[in-house]
Structure formats: structure tokens, C-alpha cells
Amino acid sequence: MKSLKKKRRVQVIVVAAVALTVATGMIGYAMRDGINFFRAPSQIMAEPPAPGEVFRIGGLVEEGSIVRGEGETIRFVVTDGGASVPVTFSGVLPDLFAENQGMVGTGSYVNGTFEATEILAKHDETYMPAEVVDALKEQGVYKEPSGS
């Protein structure tokens, strides 16, 4: 009688372990599209991402680089002080999007141009996304905000 209980207990433990493994695998599989890695322009130029890979780019919008094209297409250049990457975006830009301001975009790198599907801009005089600040500090071009 004792051995039957022991067998049943072992079976329950094995089934629970298998179910936990399958659940973990399914969660990882579902999240693979939701994870976007951040890259600075210097990193993109040093190691171009795979075609179709969705990631985030961040830096400062270069002065004089914003060109509004036909329709809603906007072209501009993002820099971290070490390298620059041309960006295209079709859609409505955030109100605070401007030259010499921090931005983060989500999209993919196609034929030497970052094609953004989403653009985020700073929301007040002192805010800049932490990823952008870190990338600018690495390049040695980050300046502490004044007037705080």
C-alpha cells in the first residue's frame, strides 16, 4: 500500500514539473516579440542588426536634419555624438519632438535607415530617457541639464 502512495506522489511531482516547464516555455515564446533591445547609433554602425529585427534606438535629433516629406513621412537623423543614423517615420510626431532633443524610437534597420514605427520624445525640460543618457555618457557628450 505504501509503495502505491509513493508511486502516485512521484507521478504528481513529475507531472507538475513537466507542466511548469511547458508553462515557462510558453511564456518565453509569447514574450519574444514584446522584448525590444535598445541600441545607440554607435552600436548600430559598429554592428548592424539583422534585417527585420525590431529594436529601440535613442539619441539626440541632429540640428537641421528634420525633413517633412510627402504626406506624413518625416526624415531626420539621430546621433549619440559618435555616430549618426538616418530615421524615417510615417505618422504623427509627439508635440515635444524637436531638434537637439532626446528621443527613443522603435522599429527596424533597413538598407542603412532606421524605419520607426513609434517615436517617443522627452516630456519636459529636464527629462531624457535613461537609455539615451547612458548612451550619451558612454560617448562623452552628455551635458547635465541646467537650471535645476
Rank of each mutant, 00 (worst) to 15 (best):
V132L: 03
I35H: 05
I119C: 06
T73I: 02
P129R: 12
I44D: 03
A50Y: 06
G28R: 13
Q101R: 15
R9F: 03
L136R: 01
T106M: 09
V141R: 11
L60K: 10
A40C: 10
Q139A: 15
T24N: 12
S148H: 11
R68L: 00
V67A: 07
I27H: 03
V22Q: 07
G107W: 05
R68C: 02
V15R: 13
Q101Y: 07
M31S: 03
K7S: 14
E70P: 00
V14Q: 11
A50S: 11
Q139L: 03
D124P: 01
T117E: 15
Y29W: 15
G28K: 11
V22A: 14
D124K: 08
R68W: 01
Q139E: 15
F37S: 13
P48I: 08
A83V: 00
V110G: 00
I35A: 02
V110A: 12
V54L: 12
Y142Q: 03
A130S: 14
V12H: 11
M1F: 09
I57K: 01
S65K: 08
G69S: 06
Q11Y: 09
M128E: 04
F97K: 03
I74D: 00
G140F: 11
L96I: 08
F76E: 02
P49A: 04
E144C: 03
E99G: 01
I13T: 10
S42Q: 12
V92S: 12
A121C: 10
V104D: 01
E47G: 01
S90L: 01
K137A: 10
L4V: 12
G58R: 06
I44H: 05
M103E: 05
G64E: 07
S146A: 15
E99K: 02
G69M: 04
M26G: 04
I44G: 02
G64Q: 04
A121H: 08
D33L: 05
K122Q: 15
G25N: 13
G71V: 00
Y142H: 07
T21F: 15
P49C: 07
V132T: 12
G69K: 10
G112Q: 03
T79G: 01
G59Q: 10
L4M: 12
I119F: 07
M1W: 09
V10L: 14
V14K: 14
G107M: 05
A40N: 08
S148R: 13
T21N: 11
L4Y: 12
G52Q: 07
G105R: 05
V22D: 04
S148Y: 14
I57C: 06
G82L: 09
K2V: 09
K7T: 13
T21V: 14
P94I: 04
F37I: 15
S90Q: 06
S108N: 13
R75T: 02
I13H: 05
A46T: 13
S146H: 09
Y109I: 02
